[in-house]
């Protein structure tokens, strides 16, 4: 049984910890709000770009001269995985769930006899993957994940690196793994293929509307200068936009996960304080009783 003094010390230290975790929770909550706003603000651009791409891609994909970003390199040998994590910890299962998904994916690909390369965005993912898959990591991009506000220029820079690698024939398929923000407490680990471009989900709708429109009497697009030029400009940008979207979602998820984790920690600390205080009071009571008994029995002995 720890002494009263020790108990007092522990209660004090748990209280301090609780103060820290609850402050972190508040900070995460306000950052979450900002990140969420940014995620929402960036959505129209990517939606409209996907719609545009869908309009264009439908006609060009199967042509022999289709750009490789759209049609693929014709092989599926080398897979590039972009791992988006955070720079900081203390955010519950945020990073480890991404890394778990990455490990599973790597194992699958290696079993199937493919080659795997990894680009890490965010320090945590690199730290966790380095031990096991250190040889596979070809690039670590620092200073992007930890920013207060995601910048499009960063995403464009990452996209450029990927494009250069693709042009050099370093990989055939590229996907990005990140946490999609669903709500402050739920994040969904998402694997999204970005090269070659997956047919956007909106493609069918768009194709349907185009078909319907042309049936209506020809709302078919004119292209200036021509479809291929536009497509060749649009595809690299689309890559940057997709990466930007993933990073923004990830940033919001990180804050959400941290908020939930810190909320839990604060609650656990409260519980611990309660238990410690209980045993502190019990012990104090026991000691008082003991002292009283000693005094009384001493007095009785003197009288008798």
């Amino acid at each position: 049984m720890p002494s009263l003094k020790e108990l007092r010390g522990r209660i004090g230290s748990v209280k301090q910890t609780q103060k820290i975790t609850s402050a972190m929770k508040l900070v995460a909550a306000s950052k979450l709000k900002r990140a969420q706003e940014q995620a929402e603000a960036s959505r129209p651009f990517s939606l409209k770009m996907s719609a545009m791409l869908a309009n264009l891609a439908a006609g060009v994909r199967d042509l022999p001269g289709a750009p490789p970003l759209l049609a693929g390199s014709g092989k599926e040998e080398t897979h590039l995985i972009v791992v988006a994590t955070s720079d900081r910890g203390l955010c519950g299962g945020f990073n480890s769930s991404i890394v778990r998904a990455v490990r599973r994916r790597i194992a699958e690909l290696l079993d199937a006899g493919k080659t795997v390369k990894i680009i890490c965005i965010g320090r945590k993912g690199r730290d966790m993957l380095r031990r096991e898959h250190g040889k596979l990591i070809i690039e670590f991009i620092d200073g992007v994940a930890g920013k207060r506000r995601m910048e499009y220029a960063d995403a464009a820079m990452v996209a450029q690196k990927i494009l250069d690698l693709y042009a050099a024939g370093e990989f055939d398929v590229c996907s990005i793994i990140f946490n999609r923000f669903k709500s402050a407490v739920t994040q969904i680990v998402t694997l999204q293929q970005i090269v070659p471009v997956e047919p956007p989900a909106a493609a069918e709708d768009a194709a349907a509307t185009t078909a319907a429109a042309s049936a209506d009497g020809g709302a078919i697009y004119e292209f200036e200068p021509d479809e291929e030029r536009i497509l060749s400009e649009l595809l690299p940008r689309n890559l940057a936009v997709q990466i930007f979207g993933a990073l923004v979602e990830n940033a919001a998820s990180e804050q959400g996960a941290r908020m939930a984790a810190m909320d839990n920690a604060t609650r656990n600390a409260g519980e611990m304080i309660r238990k410690l205080t209980l045993s502190y009071n019990r012990q104090r009571q026991a000691q008082i009783t003991k002292e009283l008994i000693e005094i009384i029995s001493g007095a009785e002995a003197a009288v008798g």
Binding site: M52, N55, L56, A213, A219, I220, Y221, E222, F223, E224, P225, R229, I230, E233
Partner: peptide, 17 residues
Amino acid sequence: EEGDFGVLVEHAPLLSL
């Protein structure tokens, strides 16, 4: 890309750089 153009309401559908 190939020159300025004005868009009024009910312009024909167009995609341009």
